[in-house]
Nucleic acid binder design. Structure first.
Lengths: 119, 119
DNA sequence: ACCGTGTACAAGAGACTGCTTGTAAATATC
DNA sequence: GATATTTACAAGCAGTCTCTTGTACACGGT
């Protein structure tokens, strides 16, 4: 068994992540950096907002754990840190009586071992 | 509610749902009505907030489409409308396409449910 | 050292949020 | 009709959010 360790305490509360995502500008930023990392300036250039405003949005996303930052010279390169979306997945699976989450619950309460495996 | 959206544009669907969910009191309300419908008074009775404050939270959730309302005499019965979580699923699958398969993996390994703490 | 570029920090304006108290509307009961 | 119950509406206050302008800091090139 692999020890999968969660450091959820280091991650932001669900509030921070959900609120960070509840803004179209910020979702657009995440869209820009979800596949490539980008310097703040190039992100800001795609908006009609000022550079400072975009920097502040980046700050919110960073604080929610949704962005990783890498410094390269004077530039700061940002990329999506998708694992920070974990609280969103939790909220979704808690409130959506999906087939999948029902299955999960059934497995937890009934069998310690999976009945199926992939061919 | 007092903040009527007069001058700003109406909240887009993902915004309203994500913002509604970004509050612990409101998530608690959803938790209460996710399996049974409840009258507003019984919901309010579980909080230390005033009845009016809870009514306002209910209004936010209702406007986000997360609650259905059914009138029975003087009571109003609320229940979770889980399909309103669709925008959340979209956000999750856009930024973390692997999230659902990870949930499946969690099922297969019989991962125990993490403890949840809310105020 | 100087200057230009890239970026964040600082402070303030205006709108919004979440809460409170006060009140009104709708339904039920007498 | 009168009264109680249940709930939402209204207004106001303090704190927070998003944006702006102005500025400072860090690095790289000349």
């Amino acid at each position: 068994m692999k020890g999968v360790r969660k450091q959820s305490t280091a991650l932001a509360a669900p509030d921070a992540v959900l609120r960070a995502l509840a803004d179209p500008h910020r979702r657009q930023i995440l869209r820009l950096v979800q596949h490539t990392e980008l310097p703040a300036g190039r992100i800001a250039a795609t908006f009609t907002l000022t550079q400072q405003a975009v920097s502040q949005h980046i700050g919110v996303l960073k604080q929610a754990g949704l962005l990783t930052e890498r410094r390269e010279g004077t530039r700061r390169l940002y990329a999506l840190h998708h694992e920070a979306l974990e609280p969103v997945r939790e909220v979704l699976s808690e409130f959506w009586p999906d087939a999948l989450s029902r299955l999960k619950k059934a497995v937890e309460t009934a069998h310690p071992r999976p009945p199926k495996r992939e061919p």
